[in-house]
């Protein structure tokens, strides 16, 4: 068969370009986010919203997606606490609420701009349990049965760290960690534990799930995990 072997060259060229993107894609992704995310945010038609920028990606460390009805959901705060307690959905909603609109930055690179959250300050949730003098940190546990996180008490008491139950004005879906999750604005997404069920006051915290796999315990955006993102 005669003719120029163009097909093979196109195939090999495109395949090499695509597969090597595993190596150069993180830089390109950052560039595209900076370039397009501000445009997409102002785009009324929603067409740019279909593009793979500025959108949440759903991760779960267990095989399935945990879900729990609000009626069956409880939060326990215990450990080194003078007044350990367990509350349900209605009691959580009765606590003084705060709203927070900030970027959500994942340590794998994606960022969602100006996400609106509503919830209760983690500081208030912890204070209600009357922490004992020896408590220095909290271990936080998900009802997926596997995910854990930690915060120092100082970090947990920041105003931009909340126990969230609304995302963009709606109840938080199971995929986004509902009914109740953590939102730790100044840190990478893995600190914002999904499917929250337990907060334990401790003196020496066990590192959380990702920290045991080498991620930084103090996950400040732009100042940890070897990344240089803008703070949220």
């Amino acid at each position: 068969m005669d003719g120029t072997p163009v097909g093979r060259r196109v195939f090999l060229g495109l395949a090499a370009f695509g597969v090597s993107g595993i190596l150069w894609g993180s830089k390109a992704a950052g560039f595209m986010e900076r370039l397009l995310a501000p445009v997409a945010a102002k785009d009324g038609s929603g067409i740019l919203g279909l593009l793979p920028i500025g959108r949440f990606r759903i991760y779960s460390i267990i095989g399935t997606l945990p879900s729990r009805a609000t009626a069956d959901w409880h939060l326990t705060v215990d450990g080194l606490a003078g007044a350990p307690y367990t509350i349900g959905w209605d009691e959580l909603l009765a606590l003084p609420s705060v709203e927070l609109t900030k970027d959500f930055q994942c340590v794998t690179g994606w960022r969602v701009l100006q996400v609106k959250w509503k919830g209760v300050r983690l500081a208030d949730v912890i204070a209600r349990a009357a922490p004992q003098a020896g408590a220095t940190a909290v271990e936080i546990e998900s009802f997926d049965g596997a995910y854990t996180e930690t915060l120092t008490l100082e970090q947990a008491r920041r105003d931009d760290v909340i126990v969230a139950y609304e995302l963009e004005g709606k109840p938080i879906s199971a995929a986004h960690g509902g009914p109740v999750r953590l939102y730790v604005a100044p840190m990478y997404g893995y600190k914002s534990l999904k499917w929250l069920q337990r907060i334990t006051l401790v003196a020496k915290p066990e590192p959380g799930y990702w920290e045991q796999q080498g991620y930084d315990v103090d996950a400040w955006i732009g100042k940890s995990n070897g990344r240089s993102d803008e703070p949220a």
Binding site: L14, A15, G18, V19, G21, I22, L23, W24, G25, S26, K27, A28, A29, M32, P52, R57, V107, T108, G109, W110, Q213, N225, G226
Partner: peptide, 27 residues
């Protein structure tokens, strides 16, 4: 082929550096 390679990095991410996962997601 690209989808298979990048999809495999997304599925079996643990042995790879974090930036590979970002790159694979993007591609």
């Amino acid at each position: 082929l690209t989808m298979l390679a990048t999809g495999s990095v997304l599925k079996f991410f643990s042995p790879f550096p974090l930036s590979w996962r970002t790159g694979a997601t993007f591609v």
